[in-house]
Design a binder for these strands. Structure first.
Lengths: 199, 199
DNA sequence: CCTACCGATCGGTAGG
DNA sequence: CCTACCGATCGGTAGG
C-alpha cells in the first residue's frame, strides 16, 4: 500500500490532478482550495504535486481553456452549416446544453472562475470567450440579414440575453433531474426563437 | 493629519467599511481581499477594524442581504399590484434593471459571492433568493391562469430562463454605455414577453 | 515521489 | 483607534 489517503490509487498524472481539481474548485472555488487539498485527493504529499505541474494557476488555466474549447468544438460546426438560421440557432442551443450536461462541474469552473487567473492568462481566455460569443452573434446577424429573424436595433443585447439564459443553466441544470439536456435545450431554444421571430 | 493613507478622512464606521468592501470584493472577490486591504481603504490599521465589526464574514453578510433586499423592495409592489400580468412582468423587469444600474457593484457581490458565507449565513440568503424567484414565478403562474400567457409544462424553466437573462445583465450592463436601465429593461422585457405570448 | 522546510500572509486578539 | 503580536495556513522549493 503506497500511502493513498484517497483516490483510486492509479498512477498520478497532470490529468488526474486536473480531474480532482475540477471537483474541488467547483465545490469551494479556486482561492479556497489549497494545494494540500488537491494532493490529498490524488493521494500524494503536497510538494509532490510539483512533479506534475509547475504552478497552481496552471491547473486552473487548463481546466478553463479546454472547458470552453468543448463548447466551441460542439457549436462551431452547427453555426457554420448551411441550414436556415433558426435551425442553426436551435442546434447551437441544444449542442450547448449537451456539453453542459456532459461537463457540468468543469463548466462551472470554466465560466465563473477564470477571473482568478493572472491578467496575461485571462487574456487567452477572453479570446476564447469572444469566439464563443461570436458564434451566436453570427447566427443572429445572418438570420436578420436573410429576413429569417426580426431586425433589432441592438443585436448585442439580443445575443447577451440568449447567452445569459444559457449560461444561467450552469447553475440550475440537474443532470439527474426530470429533464434531459435535449429537452431543456429545446425549451430554451423555443423562448429564444420566439423573441426573434418574424411576425 | 490623523494617518489616513486613503479614504476621504471622515469618521470610520461600519457603513464606511461596507462601502469600501463592496468595491474591493467586487474587484478581487471576498477570499482575495484581506482585512489589511479594507483597513487601508478606510484609513485605519487592520486591528482597528474590529472596533466596528465582529468578523470579516459579517461585512459580506450585510452587503449580500441588503443587496438582495433592494430588489425585493423594488419588485414586490409591482408584482402585487392589480395590473395585467404582462404589464407586471414588464414592470418587474424594468424595476430590476433600475436597481441594477443603481447598485451595480453591490449586486455583483450579492449575487455571486454569497457562497463564501458559512452554511448558516447562506441559509438566510437562500430565504431571500427564494422570495425573489417567487415573485417572478407568481406573475407567470397568474398570467397563465388568466390566459394572458401561453401555458407551459415547465413553469420553473420559464422562470429560470427569464431570471438568467436578467442576472446576466449584472456582468455586461454598463451604466455609462449607450443604453439606460429603462431602455435595457424594455428590450429584455420584450424578449421575455414574446416567449410567453398567447399567439 | 518524500522529507523537511521557507518566507509571506492570513484573520483576529490583548492590553492599553 | 494603535501597538504588538499570535497561531495557522498558504504556495512553493532544495535535496535527495
Amino acid at each position: 500500500m503506497p500511502k493513498a489517503p484517497d483516490a483510486s490509487s492509479g498512477p498520478v498524472s497532470a490529468e488526474l490532478i486536473e480531474k480532482a481539481a475540477v471537483q474541488l474548485f467547483g465545490e469551494r472555488t479556486y482561492p479556497l482550495v489549497g494545494m494540500r487539498d488537491i494532493s490529498n485527493a490524488v493521494g500524494i504529499l503536497p510538494g509532490s504535486l510539483y512533479v506534475h505541474i509547475r504552478r497552481k494557476e496552471d491547473i486552473l488555466l487548463r481546466i478553463v481553456e479546454n472547458g470552453i474549447q468543448r463548447y466551441l468544438d460542439a457549436i462551431e460546426p452547427v453555426v457554420e452549416s448551411s441550414a436556415p438560421a433558426p435551425d442553426r440557432l436551435r442546434g447551437a442551443i441544444v449542442a450547448y446544453m449537451r456539453v453542459l450536461a456532459d461537463t457540468l462541474p468543469q463548466t462551472r469552473v470554466a465560466f465563473h472562475q477564470w477571473t482568478y487567473l493572472s491578467p496575461d492568462m485571462q487574456e487567452r481566455v477572453i479570446v476564447l470567450r469572444r469566439r464563443y460569443e461570436g458564434l451566436f452573434t453570427r447566427v443572429l446577424r445572418e438570420g436578420i440579414a436573410n429576413g429569417e429573424f426580426r431586425p433589432t436595433a441592438h443585436l448585442r443585447i439580443a445575443v447577451l440575453a440568449i447567452l445569459g439564459m444559457l449560461n444561467a443553466a450552469t447553475e440550475w441544470f440537474a443532470p439527474d433531474g426530470g429533464l434531459s439536456a435535449q429537452q431543456v435545450g429545446d425549451l430554451l431554444a423555443d423562448s429564444a426563437l420566439k423573441g426573434l421571430e418574424q411576425r
